[in-house]
Nucleic acid binder design. Sequence first.
RNA 1: GGGCCUGUAGCUCAAUUGGUUAGAGCAGAGCGCUCAUAACGCUUUGGUUGGGGGUUCGAGUCCCUCCGGGCCUACCA
Length: 582
Amino acid sequence: MFSRQAMARILITSALPYINGIKHLGNLVGSQLPADLYARYCRARGHEVMFICATDEHGTPAELAAAKAGQPVAEYCAEMHGVQADLARGFGLSFDHFGRSSSPQNHRLTQHMAGRLAEAGLIEEVAEAQVYSPADGRFLPDRYITGTCPACGYENARGDQCENCTKQLDPTDLINPRSAISGATDLEVRRTKHLFLRQSALRDRLDAWIDSQRGWPVLTTSIAKKWLHDGDGLQDRGITRDLDWGIPVRRGTQDWPGMEGKVFYVWFDAPIEYIAATAEWAEAQGLPEDAWRRWWRRDQGAEDVRYVQFMGKDNVPFHTLSFPATLMGADHDGTEPWKLVDYIKSFNYLNYDGGQFSTSQGRGIFMDQALAILPSDYWRWWLLSHAPESADSEFTWENFQASVNKDLADVLGNFVSRVTKFCRARFGEALPEGGAWGAQETALATALGARIAAYEGHMEAIEIRKAAAELRAIWVLGNEYLQEAAPWATIKTDPERAAVQVRVGLNLIRLYAVLSRPFIPDAVETMMAAMGCADWSWPEDAGAALEGLAPGHGFSVPEVLFRKITDEERAGWAEQFAGSRG
RNA sequence: GGGCCUGUAGCUCAAUUGGUUAGAGCAGAGCGCUCAUAACGCUUUGGUUGGGGGUUCGAGUCCCUCCGGGCCUACCA
């Protein structure tokens, strides 16, 4: 953890959303949104932040989605990248760069990494038999082959596992196998050669590295340990595929004999894109190479960088094992010390109303639909305050309505409303003059100081739900103070006392805007604008923060910050989203 | 089959890693306030911590067992 005041350099990456379609809220809360929360908090504390994300564009599903859309895959990916970038902006995701794994930078770097791994003796060529479909003109991944399960007779068993009896299968086990893509039955087995990353050779080193980490989520370490020690231990992993769309297999800048026409597998090139996207950023900014290297190379400035990754639990094996193995292997001779991750924040899944969110079945709420219904802050607040940190969690419309209405509209929004409207009615649209602090104000400052410290602690530990709960408690303090101070009563007997109370109330609005910014970045802009203030400095001292806006400072009454969700709307949306996506 | 996670108030979640009387928010009940988006504040009801057994001075926490929910199991990403 970084200490108070000290400026740190924080590198943050969110797992890359796959290019195949618009992401649902479960995807969003599992990586990009919490990463954004943390990035915004770190910036607010004055740290230097590099927040990177990108679309993950390679692989069979991308090719199939493009074919379905009737587009060339490159065109499809370019278009979908634009769509995802727009939606990311819509949700306020504050990436420093939102790149593409298909970028020239990633091509170069992925090929470079492969070359370094080959030099290190960590790449092995393996010849294997794979199912080829002449009708589709492609090799078929195991689960794109369906047929009758030899164990239970289920007719739509997939080539990797029968969904009916859960038996693990080999595609050649299937009776009457056919292509899941075209239905073609003229499948044949062909020999093909692939590169394997010899992760097994790095097992002990990876194991020791995992052991040396402190405070990682149980979810992260338990998945890593399972893969390291289960069965025969960490298995080598194929890093190439027989596809057209991807990064051509090259050994650095050299051709790789025998690998013509093959591309790297997405799970090799996708994490490397974290680095390449930073290079994309530098180029886009017109900055030289060392601008990105100082984030990624320990010999070129990254020694003091703290690197934090965010991802759903399905991504953990790649980030705890494969990617570190790639970076360790690339530094086999000590000349390329790449920055390894310092903290991996992993998430469970968000379910939707009794089942899973499903991209393929169109079940649940997708990012574009969410924004069409309500502003992003409503979603950000609910998703973050219910982030699936300790277990899978569930979205229900009732819960969403209750949280939005109570937390945002009543506790925070109404606070802003009652303070500004009272002041305007009794003192006019400027902070009133006169009066001095009493015991109530001092007590408020003390309580705020304690809660802000707790909030900071939770944010730095990336305990998101706890941070949200603490922030809400900070909002509540304002209502408690007003109730006790009762300026509507004191103004009748002691107007100067009421003036002090109203000043404190108005200053609380600015304080809340600053503290709440990582969660609800749009609404706090409205709050700050209403306060006529542009000072976003973090409250190092709560008492001082309550006197930041001076007597005489003008303000205005903002529009309703958060409207309530009605029962009719809730019922309508529940109905609308029950079935599959339009 | 194997492994991991999980089960705490009607609902969503805590519980400083074995330490006093298991705590919050929402929902419910009562009271107060009238500045405010019929909002806010205070008080309060509600738990055999899934069942059973064990270790211990002491168990929500550790062990065994049974029951329920979920995830992973390496070619979807």
